[in-house]
Simulated scan of single mutants.
Amino acid sequence: MQLLSAGIDEWSPHVLSGAMLANARGAHAAPVSEWILSAILTTYRRWPALIRYQDQHTWAHRRPGTDFDTLSGKRVLVLGAGAIGTAVARLLPPFGATATMVGRTARAGVHGVDELPDLVAEHDIVVVICPLTPETDGLVDAKILAAMPDGALVVNAGRGRVVDTDALVTELTAQRLRAALDVTEPEPLPEDHPLWTCPGVIVSPHGARTVPGTNRLCYEVAAKQVAALARGETPPNAQAR
Protein backbone atom coordinates (compact mmCIF):
# COMPACT_ATOMS: atom_id res chain seq x y z
CA MET A 1 0.00 0.00 0.00
CA GLN A 2 1.44 3.34 -1.07
CA LEU A 3 0.35 6.45 0.84
CA LEU A 4 0.73 10.06 -0.25
CA SER A 5 1.15 11.23 3.35
CA ALA A 6 4.30 11.51 5.43
CA GLY A 7 2.72 9.78 8.41
CA ILE A 8 1.36 6.24 8.45
CA ASP A 9 -0.34 6.27 11.87
CA GLU A 10 -3.89 6.60 10.49
CA TRP A 11 -3.48 3.59 8.16
CA SER A 12 -1.11 1.32 10.03
CA PRO A 13 -3.73 -0.30 12.31
CA HIS A 14 -5.80 -1.35 9.28
CA VAL A 15 -3.08 -2.98 7.18
CA LEU A 16 -2.97 -6.78 7.33
CA SER A 17 0.06 -8.54 8.73
CA GLY A 18 2.53 -9.41 5.97
CA ALA A 19 1.63 -6.46 3.77
CA MET A 20 3.99 -3.58 3.03
CA LEU A 21 2.95 -0.03 3.84
CA ALA A 22 4.91 2.85 2.32
CA ASN A 23 4.69 6.58 2.90
CA ALA A 24 5.69 9.52 0.71
CA ARG A 25 8.79 10.36 2.72
CA GLY A 26 10.63 13.29 1.17
CA ALA A 27 7.72 14.81 -0.73
CA HIS A 28 6.55 17.01 2.14
CA ALA A 29 9.93 18.32 3.23
CA ALA A 30 9.89 21.61 1.30
CA PRO A 31 6.30 22.79 1.99
CA VAL A 32 6.20 21.73 5.65
CA SER A 33 9.64 23.13 6.50
CA GLU A 34 8.57 26.40 4.87
CA TRP A 35 5.47 26.48 7.09
CA ILE A 36 7.61 25.87 10.16
CA LEU A 37 9.96 28.72 9.31
CA SER A 38 7.00 31.03 8.59
CA ALA A 39 5.40 30.12 11.92
CA ILE A 40 8.58 30.96 13.81
CA LEU A 41 9.02 34.30 12.04
CA THR A 42 5.31 35.14 12.41
CA THR A 43 5.56 34.57 16.16
CA TYR A 44 8.80 36.50 16.66
CA ARG A 45 7.71 39.40 14.46
CA ARG A 46 4.31 39.57 16.19
CA TRP A 47 2.19 39.41 13.05
CA PRO A 48 -0.98 38.24 14.85
CA ALA A 49 -0.93 41.34 17.08
CA LEU A 50 -0.13 43.59 14.12
CA ILE A 51 -3.04 42.21 12.08
CA ARG A 52 -5.42 42.77 14.99
CA TYR A 53 -4.23 46.38 15.26
CA GLN A 54 -4.65 46.75 11.51
CA ASP A 55 -8.24 45.53 11.80
CA GLN A 56 -8.78 48.39 14.28
CA HIS A 57 -7.07 50.89 11.92
CA THR A 58 -4.42 51.45 14.60
CA TRP A 59 -0.81 52.40 13.86
CA ALA A 60 0.80 49.95 16.27
CA HIS A 61 4.21 51.52 16.75
CA ARG A 62 5.40 50.49 20.24
CA ARG A 63 1.92 49.34 21.21
CA PRO A 64 1.40 46.45 23.68
CA GLY A 65 2.06 43.06 22.15
CA THR A 66 4.51 44.36 19.55
CA ASP A 67 7.71 43.49 21.39
CA PHE A 68 9.44 42.12 18.30
CA ASP A 69 12.14 39.47 18.44
CA THR A 70 14.60 38.02 15.95
CA LEU A 71 15.41 34.50 14.87
CA SER A 72 19.08 35.41 14.73
CA GLY A 73 20.98 33.78 17.57
CA LYS A 74 18.16 31.42 18.53
CA ARG A 75 18.79 27.76 19.37
CA VAL A 76 16.29 25.43 17.70
CA LEU A 77 15.71 21.85 18.79
CA VAL A 78 14.27 19.75 15.95
CA LEU A 79 12.50 16.67 17.27
CA GLY A 80 12.44 14.38 14.26
CA ALA A 81 15.51 13.82 12.09
CA GLY A 82 13.80 12.66 8.90
CA ALA A 83 13.40 14.50 5.62
CA ILE A 84 11.29 17.35 7.03
CA GLY A 85 13.43 17.86 10.12
CA THR A 86 16.57 17.89 8.00
CA ALA A 87 14.99 20.48 5.68
CA VAL A 88 14.15 22.67 8.70
CA ALA A 89 17.74 22.45 9.90
CA ARG A 90 19.00 23.60 6.48
CA LEU A 91 16.73 26.68 6.49
CA LEU A 92 17.86 28.04 9.86
CA PRO A 93 21.56 29.00 9.41
CA PRO A 94 20.87 31.80 6.84
CA PHE A 95 18.81 33.48 9.58
CA GLY A 96 21.62 33.16 12.11
CA ALA A 97 19.92 30.37 14.08
CA THR A 98 21.39 27.00 15.02
CA ALA A 99 19.69 23.61 14.90
CA THR A 100 20.08 20.57 17.14
CA MET A 101 18.61 17.36 15.75
CA VAL A 102 16.93 14.67 17.85
CA GLY A 103 16.01 11.27 16.44
CA ARG A 104 14.78 7.94 17.72
CA THR A 105 18.37 6.80 18.20
CA ALA A 106 21.64 8.71 18.45
CA ARG A 107 23.91 8.83 15.41
CA ALA A 108 26.35 11.23 13.81
CA GLY A 109 24.90 14.73 14.11
CA VAL A 110 21.72 13.48 15.80
CA HIS A 111 20.97 13.15 19.51
CA GLY A 112 18.87 10.29 20.81
CA VAL A 113 15.37 10.94 22.13
CA ASP A 114 16.52 9.84 25.58
CA GLU A 115 18.49 13.11 25.77
CA LEU A 116 15.37 15.24 25.21
CA PRO A 117 14.75 16.24 28.87
CA ASP A 118 18.22 17.79 29.13
CA LEU A 119 18.28 19.31 25.65
CA VAL A 120 15.01 21.28 25.83
CA ALA A 121 16.34 23.46 28.65
CA GLU A 122 19.08 24.75 26.34
CA HIS A 123 16.88 25.76 23.38
CA ASP A 124 14.63 28.70 22.54
CA ILE A 125 12.45 26.80 20.06
CA VAL A 126 11.33 23.17 19.95
CA VAL A 127 10.08 21.99 16.56
CA VAL A 128 8.05 18.78 16.72
CA ILE A 129 8.09 16.94 13.40
CA CYS A 130 8.45 13.30 14.46
CA PRO A 131 5.92 10.63 13.44
CA LEU A 132 3.24 9.39 15.83
CA THR A 133 4.24 6.00 17.22
CA PRO A 134 3.65 4.28 20.57
CA GLU A 135 7.00 5.72 21.66
CA THR A 136 6.22 9.32 20.67
CA ASP A 137 2.57 9.43 21.81
CA GLY A 138 2.59 12.08 24.56
CA LEU A 139 6.37 12.41 24.36
CA VAL A 140 6.32 16.19 24.87
CA ASP A 141 4.58 16.02 28.21
CA ALA A 142 4.24 18.35 31.19
CA LYS A 143 7.77 17.53 32.36
CA ILE A 144 9.34 18.32 28.98
CA LEU A 145 7.33 21.55 28.60
CA ALA A 146 8.24 22.64 32.14
CA ALA A 147 11.93 22.18 31.32
CA MET A 148 11.75 24.66 28.43
CA PRO A 149 13.02 28.20 29.14
CA ASP A 150 10.55 31.01 29.84
CA GLY A 151 9.30 32.50 26.58
CA ALA A 152 10.27 29.46 24.52
CA LEU A 153 8.28 28.51 21.43
CA VAL A 154 6.75 25.10 20.66
CA VAL A 155 6.14 24.47 16.95
CA ASN A 156 4.18 21.31 16.16
CA ALA A 157 3.84 20.24 12.53
CA GLY A 158 4.03 16.51 13.23
CA ARG A 159 1.07 15.00 15.04
CA GLY A 160 -1.06 16.57 17.75
CA ARG A 161 -0.79 13.62 20.11
CA VAL A 162 2.98 13.95 20.39
CA VAL A 163 2.38 17.02 22.60
CA ASP A 164 0.29 16.81 25.78
CA THR A 165 -2.50 19.27 24.99
CA ASP A 166 -3.60 19.88 28.59
CA ALA A 167 -0.03 20.54 29.71
CA LEU A 168 0.51 22.90 26.78
CA VAL A 169 -2.70 24.83 27.57
CA THR A 170 -1.46 25.24 31.15
CA GLU A 171 1.87 26.70 30.00
CA LEU A 172 0.22 28.98 27.43
CA THR A 173 -2.38 30.23 29.88
CA ALA A 174 0.39 31.14 32.30
CA GLN A 175 2.05 32.98 29.37
CA ARG A 176 5.29 31.14 30.07
CA LEU A 177 5.51 29.44 26.65
CA ARG A 178 4.27 30.23 23.14
CA ALA A 179 3.14 27.85 20.42
CA ALA A 180 2.50 27.54 16.69
CA LEU A 181 0.39 24.49 15.89
CA ASP A 182 -0.48 22.97 12.53
CA VAL A 183 -1.72 19.84 14.28
CA THR A 184 -3.71 19.47 17.50
CA GLU A 185 -5.24 16.86 19.76
CA PRO A 186 -8.16 16.63 19.28
CA GLU A 187 -8.35 17.39 15.56
CA PRO A 188 -10.20 19.19 14.16
CA LEU A 189 -10.08 21.47 17.16
CA PRO A 190 -13.60 21.97 18.61
CA GLU A 191 -14.80 25.57 18.51
CA ASP A 192 -15.00 25.72 22.33
CA HIS A 193 -11.52 24.30 22.94
CA PRO A 194 -9.31 26.48 25.19
CA LEU A 195 -6.41 26.39 22.71
CA TRP A 196 -8.28 28.87 20.49
CA THR A 197 -8.08 31.61 23.11
CA CYS A 198 -4.77 30.86 24.80
CA PRO A 199 -2.35 33.80 24.66
CA GLY A 200 0.67 33.43 22.42
CA VAL A 201 -0.64 30.65 20.18
CA ILE A 202 -1.11 30.39 16.41
CA VAL A 203 -3.37 27.60 15.14
CA SER A 204 -3.22 26.39 11.54
CA PRO A 205 -5.74 23.76 10.29
CA HIS A 206 -3.29 20.96 9.41
CA GLY A 207 -2.43 22.72 6.17
CA ALA A 208 1.37 22.95 6.23
CA ARG A 209 1.67 20.71 3.16
CA THR A 210 -1.29 22.22 1.30
CA VAL A 211 0.37 24.34 -1.35
CA PRO A 212 0.56 24.02 -5.16
CA GLY A 213 2.92 21.30 -6.29
CA THR A 214 2.83 19.06 -3.21
CA ASN A 215 0.63 16.42 -4.82
CA ARG A 216 3.01 16.25 -7.78
CA LEU A 217 5.91 15.67 -5.39
CA CYS A 218 3.94 12.92 -3.64
CA TYR A 219 3.15 11.13 -6.90
CA GLU A 220 6.78 11.38 -7.98
CA VAL A 221 7.77 9.54 -4.80
CA ALA A 222 4.98 7.01 -5.35
CA ALA A 223 6.14 6.37 -8.92
CA LYS A 224 9.68 5.62 -7.71
CA GLN A 225 8.28 3.26 -5.10
CA VAL A 226 6.20 1.37 -7.67
CA ALA A 227 9.15 1.22 -10.05
CA ALA A 228 11.30 -0.33 -7.32
CA LEU A 229 8.61 -2.92 -6.64
CA ALA A 230 8.35 -3.72 -10.37
CA ARG A 231 12.12 -4.37 -10.43
CA GLY A 232 11.68 -6.90 -7.64
CA GLU A 233 13.15 -4.59 -5.01
CA THR A 234 11.69 -3.50 -1.68
CA PRO A 235 10.47 0.10 -2.07
CA PRO A 236 12.72 2.41 0.00
CA ASN A 237 9.81 3.85 2.02
CA ALA A 238 8.10 0.51 2.67
CA GLN A 239 7.69 -1.03 6.09
CA ALA A 240 6.81 -4.71 6.46
CA ARG A 241 3.82 -5.37 8.71
Rank of each mutant, 00 (worst) to 15 (best):
M1N: 00
Q2K: 01
L3M: 10
G7E: 13
D9S: 12
W11T: 11
S12W: 05
P13C: 11
L16C: 09
L16I: 02
S17F: 09
S17A: 15
G18D: 12
A19V: 00
M20R: 12
M20W: 15
A24K: 11
G26E: 05
A27N: 06
H28K: 04
S33N: 06
S33E: 10
E34I: 09
E34A: 14
I36Y: 04
I40K: 04
L41F: 05
L41M: 14
R46T: 15
A49R: 13
R52T: 13
Q56L: 15
W59R: 03
W59N: 02
A60H: 12
H61Y: 15
R62P: 05
G65S: 12
T70V: 08
T70M: 13
L71W: 02
L79I: 01
A81N: 06
G82M: 01
G82F: 02
G85T: 07
G85I: 08
A87D: 03
A87E: 08
A89L: 00
A89M: 00
R90Q: 09
L91I: 02
L91H: 09
P94T: 01
F95R: 06
M101F: 01
A106Q: 11
R107F: 04
R107C: 11
G109Q: 02
H111S: 06
V113D: 08
D114K: 08
E115Y: 04
L116H: 12
L116N: 09
L119Q: 01
E122H: 11
I125T: 08
V128M: 07
I129C: 12
C130Q: 05
P131E: 03
P131L: 01
P134H: 10
E135S: 04
T136E: 09
T136S: 15
D137T: 02
G138K: 10
V140P: 12
K143Q: 15
K143G: 11
I144R: 02
A146D: 15
P149D: 03
G151S: 09
L153R: 11
A157G: 03
R159S: 06
G160F: 07
R161D: 05
V162G: 04
V163H: 13
T165N: 08
A167T: 08
L168C: 08
T170P: 00
E171Q: 15
E171F: 10
A174D: 11
R178Y: 05
R178Q: 15
A180F: 03
V183M: 11
V183T: 11
P186T: 10
P186N: 14
P186M: 06
E187G: 11
E191V: 12
W196F: 03
W196N: 00
W196H: 07
P199Y: 03
V203L: 13
S204W: 02
P205F: 06
H206Q: 00
A208V: 06
A208L: 04
T210C: 13
T210P: 00
P212E: 05
G213D: 07
T214G: 05
T214Q: 13
N215C: 09
L217V: 08
L217I: 02
C218K: 10
C218A: 15
V221M: 12
L229Q: 13
A230E: 14
R231N: 14
E233H: 10
E233M: 14
P236T: 03
P236L: 06
N237R: 08
N237V: 10
A238I: 14
Q239M: 08
A240Y: 10
R241D: 00
